[in-house]
Computed example of a mutant assay.
Amino acid sequence: MDRTNEVKKSLEALARKQVLIGIPDGSDRPEEKGQPITNAQLLYAHTHGIRQKSMREEMNPKVESGEMTYSQAYQMWLQTHGSPLWHSPPRPVLEPAIEHHKDEIAMQLRRVLDVALNGGDPEPELHKAGMMGQNFARDWFTNSANGWPQNSPRTVEKKGSDKPLIDTGELRKAITYVIEG
């Protein structure tokens, strides 16, 4: 029995799918002054670090005039917490965690392709790939390979922990996956 057309359709459908790892940004939530930032915004800030005061002072007039768009929640958070006395170095999570485990993820994605080539439903294998990425990213918070700088003594004293980015665990738990397409 020739199943070439079925396999071709399955592969075409698979080519439109993406497994995305991260934190949904909650973009349906309106940004209002005084509202806490989302976990997606918080992870972004920790990935890229907190802007220095001179950079914020240069950017603020552009943002306020509308010349430059910038998340209001992120801007508020930087102004509230971003003084030179409270410096936060970048601590990226998603990209380095995925890169560190790229061989394992590639093997799972090969399984996805094998299932599709054999005429099966690749969706369960895509979910396994997503779950792997989610778990690798969540593990990155405590993985010694992350290379993150230690918390400053002041931060350790203030939060009572020497674990960077871990207070309640909510940021880590917010990392998930979705399959689109």
Rank of each mutant, 00 (worst) to 15 (best):
M1P: 10
M1H: 14
M1I: 12
N5Q: 11
V7F: 03
K9I: 06
L11M: 14
E12P: 04
K17Q: 15
L20M: 07
G22C: 11
I23T: 04
G26C: 07
S27F: 13
G34M: 06
P36R: 09
T38N: 03
N39H: 15
A40S: 12
L42R: 09
L42E: 01
Y44T: 08
Y44L: 13
T47R: 00
T47Y: 00
H48Q: 07
H48L: 02
G49D: 06
I50D: 11
R51Q: 14
Q52L: 11
Q52D: 15
Q52V: 15
K53P: 04
S54H: 10
M55D: 13
E64D: 05
G66I: 10
G66V: 06
G66S: 07
T69H: 12
S71N: 13
W77F: 13
T80A: 05
H81C: 01
H81E: 12
S83N: 08
S83F: 10
W86S: 13
L94Y: 00
P96H: 02
E99N: 08
E99C: 00
E99S: 03
D103K: 11
M107H: 07
M107S: 14
R110W: 08
D114H: 12
V115Q: 06
N118S: 09
G119F: 08
P122K: 11
P124Y: 09
L126V: 09
K128L: 11
R138V: 00
R138L: 05
W140I: 02
W140T: 01
F141H: 11
F141V: 15
S144V: 12
N146I: 03
W148S: 01
P149G: 08
Q150R: 10
R154V: 07
T155N: 05
E157P: 02
K158C: 01
G160L: 06
K163A: 11
L165S: 06
I166Q: 10
I166L: 14
G169Y: 10
L171Y: 06
K173E: 14
K173L: 13
A174F: 05
A174H: 02
I175M: 03
Y177R: 02
I179T: 07
